[in-house]
Design a binder for these strands. Sequence first.
DNA 1: CATGAATGAGTATTCATTCAT
DNA 2: AATGAATGAATACTCATTCAT
Lengths: 176, 176, 176, 176
Amino acid sequence: MDTRERIVNVASRLFYKQGYNSTGINQVIKEAEVAKASLYQYFPSKEDLLVEYLRVTAENTEKSLRAFIDKYSTPEEKALAVFDFILKFSKQADFNGCNFLNIAAEVPVDDARVRQLIRRQKDSIRSLFAGILKPAGKEKLADELYLLFDAALVTGKVHEGSWPVKTAKKMAEKLL
Amino acid sequence: MDTRERIVNVASRLFYKQGYNSTGINQVIKEAEVAKASLYQYFPSKEDLLVEYLRVTAENTEKSLRAFIDKYSTPEEKALAVFDFILKFSKQADFNGCNFLNIAAEVPVDDARVRQLIRRQKDSIRSLFAGILKPAGKEKLADELYLLFDAALVTGKVHEGSWPVKTAKKMAEKLL
Amino acid sequence: MDTRERIVNVASRLFYKQGYNSTGINQVIKEAEVAKASLYQYFPSKEDLLVEYLRVTAENTEKSLRAFIDKYSTPEEKALAVFDFILKFSKQADFNGCNFLNIAAEVPVDDARVRQLIRRQKDSIRSLFAGILKPAGKEKLADELYLLFDAALVTGKVHEGSWPVKTAKKMAEKLL
Amino acid sequence: MDTRERIVNVASRLFYKQGYNSTGINQVIKEAEVAKASLYQYFPSKEDLLVEYLRVTAENTEKSLRAFIDKYSTPEEKALAVFDFILKFSKQADFNGCNFLNIAAEVPVDDARVRQLIRRQKDSIRSLFAGILKPAGKEKLADELYLLFDAALVTGKVHEGSWPVKTAKKMAEKLL
DNA sequence: CATGAATGAGTATTCATTCAT
DNA sequence: AATGAATGAATACTCATTCAT
């Protein structure tokens, strides 16, 4: 694996696990086994590295999620599969809520670049639901399901066990 | 207003507005017009100040929220009023999402003291809903409404306008 | 001697001896035996320390110079004494030219604050000459003597021995 | 223009404009559109590049200066023409004082190689004046005119307008 | 009970230089 | 002869915390 990739992987893991502000450049370079100046060759500032983390994570999330729901056939099944996806995700040992909402809590309100990336990822989830539900003529439910999506991630982080995600799924079933 | 109170007020405002990690002790003592050693007399560490912020905010939130819903009579009206409360809150210029979920994104996963306080506040909201809905025999909806509560705060922070909060309220109406 | 004074003294010595850019904050705090944060408490940035160096040096230079020439009585003697002052200064082991012109060569052209301080010190020398020569009705020579002043310092730095300063004094004698 | 030449040209411009220490190798290679290793092939260290800058600049300055004064016939006219040369130079938008004295303010006192180059250039100016004045039997004035030369450059840098250069010329006229 | 000077470990970032290709 | 990725040491600066008064 090449240098740049190693940096992004390590930073992604640490930003998610510990938060952006609590992760120092020194820890990133140490765990990525990379010289400090090498990191700065690829990412002129820590924020640039954050932006890449958000970009890559959004991309990967969308890809995995689409792959996951593609296994289902009806719109309703697909929509519910999204919550199974979250359930699986939330059961992982390193689950720590939503990558994007966590960052949103850390960056200043006036950081336009980062906040736009976050909003964009969220909008892609709304679009995903809308795309799924269109064939069934239930597009209007997209925003509601998206709210449950955020709730599952965020509330699932705070409480022990999987009940928030499961409850969100149950609510989604009612809606559909 | 006395010293300790001034510290807590200023810290609360800054922790919510800028985040915990982005708020330095120096800024707190400067804006509170307090000597550094005075702050450390009341709060031996920055985390102790954070804990007090969470405690006071939980208390004040619960108080205001209860006062707000007390103006309504039926359980259903009271439950929906919670979302009007969020709507009002979210329209304030300095709205920045949920005080507690924001902190949850900033502190290490293994910070038991802080995470417990956050969970406790969230549980108090679940109980509030449960208490409201009990007379109507709809206690089972408490967790669902609480999920919508979190969603309204968190999703309302990321997007422009009030549609997330309004959508959450609409979903609550359906449930009831 | 108190902390702040120690910082300024050490910084002054090093800025003059090694130059501003070649002197690191770390060297200053080490030689001043002061903690890094202490330095930054007194001087929020390295440039602020530079500004203080220029201020203090201008003040001290003016004071010593005035004290030195006060020992002479006629305007002509006083004016020439300025060059004896430089001669004495230039013979010191650590002589490294003009404190102010050295800095002028190091700071960006657009650093208004620093450049103004430098110009101001130079103007105070012009005024000094003007004040000395006024009683003799030779004020018009002030700028010419000031040019020789700068030349003595700057050319005296580049060459071995004291001939530049002595030549400057000889030229001053001719003018008077 | 070949690689080496491009490097020297860019470095010369930047060293003069921004100073030696404030000019990074990266800026040089970027503006010269040259690979980093190429620069280090021609100049094993940054100081080597500095040395070449001083060498080339000394050469070019002497050439232009001689060409400029050759247009005049008498020793006195030639000597004064030197100050017209400075006047022209000082009126250029990018005038920033004396190339050599600026560097002298930036390099450590014990950098023998660089300081010798600087002194050598200054001596070449003294020789130039001596050569000019010899036919008129005024060689003894060479050092005095050279002092005015340095003063014109250095004082002309600090103050607004051209008065220092003009005053230096006027003083030269008196001497001759 | 209050003060503010002092601290040491930490931050993000930049430097001139080297090396494998 | 030319490349550009990689390096380690240094840079200016900030942090939460302590201590003598």
